[in-house]
Design a binder for these strands. Structure first.
Length: 278
DNA sequence: CGTCTTTGACCGGCGC
DNA sequence: GCGCCGGTCAAAGACG
């Protein structure tokens, strides 16, 4: 309980730091937009190389904003900085581009820095069809197609963050035209991440090694923090559902059960360094 | 033998 | 038109 309270306090501090960072980012972005609007009177700002611009905006989104594409079927839950920044700029563009961009979502997953597999397990079944080394990032970018359904048009690009090699950025394009495979088999995956509103929680349960890494962001921010973030207030039943989902997924993982059993039997060694990492 | 990954080749968009 | 660059294809190999 002491450890839990300590971690909770640390999470609160980190959340506050994240809030300050988000606010600073918003202020800086507004200042930049004002500056660019003053300098260039043109309607569209530098139509050259839209793709690189979109990627550079995603690089600014490394502040632990973890989203799951499964909830992004209509884009209403995409309230992250990258989405908001792109939607702000898209307001002056053609509706066709807005339609295309509405189907694009990004997921940031923290993984082991030594893991070079570029595999982001999100419950879907993916087939790798290409890998490229892009110009703006020395890490190779992997291209995946959804192979769960032959007609599923969803594609996924996975690339390590140029700023933090331990963060893998997965960009999803399109919408799945089938149900989530994990609904059929909840034990098929060992890595899950979920998002409710702006509160992100990512669990990385490594079944291959003896270590268990939990990436947790405080699930219950204070009302003040909630207001300061994006004003998206969660319903209590959603928080309850969130906690239930976390508990059920943790208890379904055999490695987590083994760790709990070892802890109960007195063989579990508390590693403070691991918990202090996040 | 079927499926998946790897990787060089190829294609199309874009800027100059 | 040419070159660069990101994205895709497809043959070959790996793997269970």
């Amino acid at each position: 309980m002491e450890e839990l309270s300590r971690v909770s306090a640390e999470n609160k501090k980190l959340t506050e730091m994240l809030t300050v960072m988000c606010e600073n980012y918003t202020q800086l972005r507004n200042q930049l937009m004002e500056h660019t609007s003053k300098n260039s009177t043109g309607v569209d700002n530098t139509p050259t190389s839209r793709k690189r611009k979109a990627e550079s905006s995603s690089m600014m989104n490394i502040s632990g904003n973890i989203k799951n594409s499964n909830n992004n079927t209509n884009g209403t839950e995409n309230v992250g900085p990258s989405e908001s920044s792109s939607s702000d700029e898209d307001s002056s563009k053609k509706p066709k581009e807005e339609l295309i961009k509405a189907k694009i979502s990004r997921v940031h997953v923290r993984t082991e820095a030594s893991d070079t597999s570029l595999i982001v397990k999100d419950g879907y079944q993916w087939r790798k069809y290409g890998q490229k080394v892009t110009r703006d990032n020395p890490s190779p970018r992997a291209y995946f197609k959804c192979s769960f359904a032959p007609t599923c048009p969803v594609k996924k690009k996975v690339q390590r963050s140029i700023e933090d090699q331990s963060i893998v950025v997965a960009t999803y394009e399109g919408e799945h035209n089938h149900s989530h495979p994990s609904k059929l088999d909840a034990n098929s995956t060992s890595n899950r991440s979920m998002t409710l509103g702006n509160v992100s929680c990512s669990t990385t349960l490594s079944s291959s090694g003896p270590t268990i890494t939990l990436d947790l962001t405080k699930p219950n921010p204070s009302p003040q923090e909630t207001r300061s973030l994006r004003g998206k207030i969660e319903a209590p039943e959603m928080q309850h559902y969130f906690v239930e989902q976390m508990a059920s997924q943790l208890t379904k993982d055999p490695s987590f059960k083994a760790a709990i059993a070892a802890a109960i039997s007195g063989k579990f060694v508390q590693q403070n360094n691991q918990t202090e990492k996040w």
